[in-house]
């Protein structure tokens, strides 16, 4: 019997190694898999390359991982925010390398990795600082920049529900990068608020098919009242 469920966040992040590339889902704190990140901090892996839209907010989640000194490089679109002080300090000290990627290109490059594409030509960024030195091509009279896929060893994502085969559904705008990161990583680890019986999720509504998911861990929602609000 296949059961991708693991008993604890610690078991879920087992095997994430020093120097690994790790995608972390979430847009700001919506969809951020906080308990998996806490487990990763406890587990101790460092020298990580992190792929996320942001570079941590406040004191928890990715911000805590950065504050713990575990991140060598971050690939993201929007690092600087009012509450990104942990990233700001490490970046200014020269402790973290930053690869800044336009948000849509970040999504497209992650999606390309999960789809087995060798590269993409994107119109976004053409003629700007972020395309400097990159190959370009004119196709049907429009200019494009060649961008390469972003792969990762692991993806840590948050979903609303899973069954034991790893089929996932998400909740509202917490979906954001989850489905495409699940496709792009060698090992995708999902924390979910609910485990459904096999067949308990309407197959027409499954967003991420279980083929893209290797481990799931049940984390009861920290804020059930908010989770039930409309």
């Amino acid at each position: 019997m296949i059961d991708k469920g693991v008993p604890t966040p610690a078991a879920a992040v087992a095997g994430i190694f020093h120097g690994a590339s790790v995608m972390i889902g979430g847009f700001g704190t919506a969809g951020m898999p906080d308990q998996l990140i806490d487990a990763l901090i406890d587990q101790g892996a460092g020298d990580l390359t992190i792929i996320n839209n942001n570079a941590g907010n406040g004191e928890t989640g990715l911000a805590a991982l950065i504050a713990a000194g575990r991140v060598r490089k971050i690939i993201c679109s929007f690092p600087r925010q009012s509450d990104s002080h942990h990233f700001d300090a490490r970046y200014r000290a020269g402790d973290i390398e930053l690869e800044l990627v336009p948000q849509g290109n970040l999504a497209a490059r992650i999606h390309a990795a999960g789809s087995g594409l060798g590269a993409i030509f994107t119109p976004t960024g053409f003629g700007t600082l972020l395309a400097e030195g990159k190959e370009t091509r004119e196709i049907d009279g429009k200019n494009y920049v060649l961008e390469y896929p972003i792969h990762a060893d692991f993806a840590l994502i948050k979903a609303e529900a899973a069954d034991r085969w790893g089929n996932l559904v998400y909740r509202k705008t917490a979906r954001n990068f989850g489905p495409i990161m699940a496709m792009a990583a060698k090992c995708t680890i999902a924390q979910v608020a609910r485990i459904a019986p096999l067949g308990g999720i309407d197959p027409e509504t499954i967003v991420t098919p279980g083929i893209f998911v290797q481990r799931i861990v049940h984390i009861a929602s920290a804020a059930p009242s908010a989770a039930q609000a409309a």
Binding site: F27, A30, A107, Y170, K172, I180, A226, A227, A229
Partner: peptide, 29 residues
């Protein structure tokens, strides 16, 4: 009535109208 899972691009809480939909980042862009 704010829901931390229902935010806009400025990370402020918003609502969804009847008929509204959610999608992932590759679809959005």
């Amino acid at each position: 009535a704010e829901d931390p899972d229902l935010i806009n691009a400025g990370k402020q809480p918003v609502t969804l109208l009847p008929g509204g939909s959610f999608f992932h980042h590759a679809d959005s862009f």
